[in-house]
Amino acid sequence: MVTVTLNGLSVDLRDRAVLHGISATLRPGELTGIIGPNGAGKSTLVRALLGLIPATRGAVEIDGHDIARMTPKALARLVSYLPQGQALHWPLSVERLVALGRLPGLGPMSRLGADDLAAVHAAMKRADVLHLAGRTATELSGGERARVMLARALAVGAPGLVADEPLAALDPGHQIDVMELLAAEANSGALVVTVLHDLTMAARYCKRLLLVDRGMLVAQGSPQEVLTSDRLRAVYGVTGRIEFGGGSAMVVPLERV
């Protein structure tokens, strides 16, 4: 289990300040959602969290170790990443694609061992894509591909998982599939952080939300604490219907203000 701490994290991209002094602690065992309007800096936050872009000021620490001082491989074994948009540049078979998740543990020119194959199999089973094993990944439907990409991230076997907009372009059924999978991973003790646009999904499945606006962390806490109509108005510029009751929370944007 790992805990990620953001210590006054600021990121400038091409001299433009994108993130301003974000401090938060991301804990294992609770699905954490990062929400905020377009251009708020969610993806930048996620990329900084994974060490893909350096912190300009402040630091990201995993279990107290600054990730800027870790080797790319060591970091890759701690946190796996599901990037936005399911990019895949070659028509690989589903298995081969999922097996890419084992790379952080492999040396150059080495082969997959029995434990790697077991991890690949387990990840495919968890994401329910075993039946797609022999298919070509570029020929799958969007929903199938999303699950396959998720299996790829799970195959790393890292204690942490960061997903950037995993629900984009998915129908409601597949959205629920993916959220339930992420929640199950978190419940099994993993650190799972996901960027979301769908506030209902965020409210329903996340135990904790970070609301980012214009590069600043404007709220963090449980969905009830974070998702209020004042904040919808101030951050997203919309009115909305917000209901929390039992397991069927609902946040529906209504109109622009």
Partner: peptide, 21 residues
């Protein structure tokens, strides 16, 4: 030498780096 890194790059630059490349 870099076969594995090329494989990882089929997931894009960020995907490859998040796999330790």
């Amino acid at each position: 030498w870099d076969g594995r890194a090329l494989d990882a790059l089929s997931l894009g630059e960020d995907g490859a780096r998040s796999l330790g490349v």
